[in-house]
């Protein structure tokens, strides 16, 4: 893959947004978007974890899995790396920044099962990114995800007093809003193509 890391970073935010075009991380996106504050907390945690785990997984893949010929174990190894890092981060925050722990730390367990994290590691392998590209893609995807969840949380706050058909309440209307957001993001798609 010969693509500028900086371009890739912007592409990950806008043209191939991890949530709006690749549908990753939907579960926590729908369930944590009721309040702006918690959306911001989870989004920040996702940015940190995505950036670091895409770097870690790149190193593990190219210096451990490939030399030993055990690429087929990548799923298990990636999951373990992600889970271990999240656990480590949780302990670290709890120990050194207890105030931050209450705004950020509570979301960390949710992140292990957030498919965006695992998905970015898999995309990195499939598209054969180098180290710098992987980190740029990871950080960009995280910011793109934060952008999407903040937009939904903002719209849902406005929607609280509005009358929504009973069958659409909750997930249904959120999906329609997300669809409209995705439609808007299609407008960016001509700028750069990375898929």
């Amino acid at each position: 893959m010969d693509i500028n890391a900086f371009v890739l970073f912007w592409a990950a935010i806008f043209t191939s947004n991890i949530l709006l075009t690749n549908f990753l991380g939907m579960c926590s996106y729908l369930s944590v978007s009721r309040e702006l504050e918690s959306a911001l907390g989870l989004g920040t945690a996702v940015i940190i974890v995505l950036t670091v785990t895409s770097a870690l997984n790149w190193v593990v893949y190219h210096y451990l899995l490939v030399p030993f010929g055990i690429v087929y174990l990548q799923f298990i190894v990636f999951i373990i790396v992600i889970a271990a890092f999240v656990q480590f981060l949780e302990l670290l925050i709890e120990r050194y920044a207890p105030a931050l722990y209450y705004t950020l730390g509570i979301f960390l367990p949710l992140i292990t099962v957030n498919c965006a994290i695992f998905g970015v590691s898999l995309f990195m392998v499939i598209r054969d990114y180098n180290f710098i590209q992987s980190v740029a893609f990871g950080a960009g995807s995280g910011i793109g995800w934060l952008l999407a969840i903040m937009m939904l949380a903002g719209i849902r706050r406005k929607l609280k007093e509005k009358l929504v058909p009973i069958g659409l309440r909750g997930a249904g209307i959120s999906l329609i809003i997300t669809g409209i957001m995705a439609l808007g993001f299609v407008g960016f798609s001509g700028i750069v193509q990375i898929q």
């Binding site: 709006l20 058909p165 009973i166 069958g167 659409l168 249904g172 999906l175 329609i176 995705a182």
Partner: peptide, 22 residues
């Protein structure tokens, strides 16, 4: 073929089923 339609279709699907359920 593009992403937005998937969101809309799933939403409509959930809408129909939920209305029926209620």
């Amino acid at each position: 073929v593009m992403a937005p339609s998937a969101f809309f279709l799933l939403a409509i699907f959930i809408w129909i089923i939920n209305t029926h359920y209620y």
